[in-house]
Design a protein around this nucleic acid. Sequence first.
DNA 1: GTTAACTTCGTGTGCGTACACGCAAATGTA
DNA 2: TACATTTGCGTGTACGCACACGAAGTTAAC
Lengths: 350, 350
Amino acid sequence: MITINDIAKEAGVSIGTIDRVIHNRGGVSKKTEAKVNAIIKKHDFKINVIASSLASNKKFEIATLIPEFDSKNTFWKSPMMGISKAKEDIEKFGVKVNSYTFNQFEVSSYVSQFKKIIASKPDAVIFTPLFGTETQLLAEALDNKKIPYIFLNVNLDGFDNMSFIGQDSYMSGVLAGKLMHLSINDDASIAIMQTRINVDNNHAIYNRISGFDDYFTDNNISINRTKVTIFNLDDTDELKEKLHDMFNANPTIKGIFVPSSRVFSFANCIDNSKIKDLALIGFDGTEQNIKCLEDGRVSFLISQKPFKEGYESIKLMVDYLIEKKRPVSKIYSPIEILTKENVKFSMELK
Amino acid sequence: MITINDIAKEAGVSIGTIDRVIHNRGGVSKKTEAKVNAIIKKHDFKINVIASSLASNKKFEIATLIPEFDSKNTFWKSPMMGISKAKEDIEKFGVKVNSYTFNQFEVSSYVSQFKKIIASKPDAVIFTPLFGTETQLLAEALDNKKIPYIFLNVNLDGFDNMSFIGQDSYMSGVLAGKLMHLSINDDASIAIMQTRINVDNNHAIYNRISGFDDYFTDNNISINRTKVTIFNLDDTDELKEKLHDMFNANPTIKGIFVPSSRVFSFANCIDNSKIKDLALIGFDGTEQNIKCLEDGRVSFLISQKPFKEGYESIKLMVDYLIEKKRPVSKIYSPIEILTKENVKFSMELK
DNA sequence: GTTAACTTCGTGTGCGTACACGCAAATGTA
DNA sequence: TACATTTGCGTGTACGCACACGAAGTTAAC
């Protein structure tokens, strides 16, 4: 393995000069440059990434901004954990990650956090552009400063974002439709549970419902589907009552589709005797959901590996910052089907 | 980020001593060691892999031995690609990977390749212990030389292997059973396609069939299941004839379970008009299988991410060689369900 | 001869690694 | 007891390889 030193000797110049040639930093005569390049080519010299990253003590800062999570809305916990994991992994490369969160129900919190980020002069930003209009303005600030940014989980068109990482929510809805179709008889009917606007990750939810609906429409399956709206998922009494009314009004309901990560809330409000005959399908392998899956109260969970999304978004950005590798513009996470049988193997390897 | 130097200062000793503590090289008094360890723990010091691998100009060599693949038996292609990818990734850490393959139908090829590996004096070996008796002898040689090894894809008990990475084939069979059950009516019947012994990855196949069977038995589902044996999958004529006979003999067959990666062979030998009403379930997201999935001739594929298995086995070993991190003794890959809807998102991120 | 503009050199830096060596206490020997 | 030898514990530092910047050398221009 040839080193910069060997080249310097062979070319009869110092390693400083070699370094300038390699990095095109100028200040080298045409003659010397040609000579050095010839030697580099001759020996197929490749820069030693290890030594390089040790020497170039460049310190990058990446800022991340995603919605906060709490014990009820745990959706954003996984991406955050992925970000944290990536943070550890890349620390050794001298890249710092500063994580910010915002309240997804308050535009003002989004804006103010974003402004903080811009003020911190990061080298790159990874964020969830939940609010279109405001993002317009904020992204412009990043564009002006030539700060690269990646959209995480929510995609908006017409922006200069380097990439988008997230799920194809529509397709995951279609898949949910298929699984539901397999799980119930054709003469049964289905309830689609909706929550009030501004729910956790509501952008995706809308698409999931479309996909779910379209599966039945496109395949000419005439299973009856009812949309039921719940106002407060944390109000167990309301939920139980609503469900009770629902089953009374429509006793043929055998499938319940919950297009959010809250399927466990429903599972916990249905009697054990009744739930046996029901197919519940929901999203995201959160702790509570997995519990329901394991004891058979939920049939399928669809997960988009949100941990990995968070993790990869950082890794991608680091690859860009350090090695100038531009990622592709859209990266879809896998749409994973979780069942009782495979769930315990579904956590990330390692 | 805390360095070895900071620790030395804080402990009031030299960095040499810190190094000895970190690597357990002895020659440090209990007192000093405790003190240093406390500081290491306090600051959560992690060795800087970059600097470490630069300094220790050690060149590790990992040998891998897995079955060869060809255009028909493509199962082993993915692990090999995972190995190749990992190879690239770790090259910069001064770790070399030498890949060997053997003919899975010839014990002698396994043994001779293994002997080559031992002769090459590798620092670690990753291999598929397909033949038990022979492995006994060969693994002993590794034990004697204190060369660590990981089992890939096939697990054998009673060995000193550092870890096993592979799938829980039994459970993937159970899952296949569940999906099959969902896909057909209770009055239909199922054909389980067996191939002659010595088929690609036959170890797993046996377990898959057990799992599949047990799903029905354990859940008291009385769907009729027939086992059909095919001698040569590459003989299209034999296959077509067998299938034809089978459907004649048992017209209620609506589900076909192929416990290997060869489900595409079956799909390609069934008329388009007939296949519409059939549920075909197979294993592994090989190119040909995915094609069948996409055009609807196969309902489900179950995949254990063999690429990732290959990739992770190397990474795990590198972590051990460089950082002395011992992996857990058994690592199961996810049992992934592939459908028409999610298959295009299932390739690895990046 | 002075200045400015180019080129190139030399070296400290990043962070561990590993080995040579120093020093003191413990043990051995006569 | 007096001295030598062995152990045990630590120190100091030369690497590994590229990076980056101040300083010095060279050339050309006026």
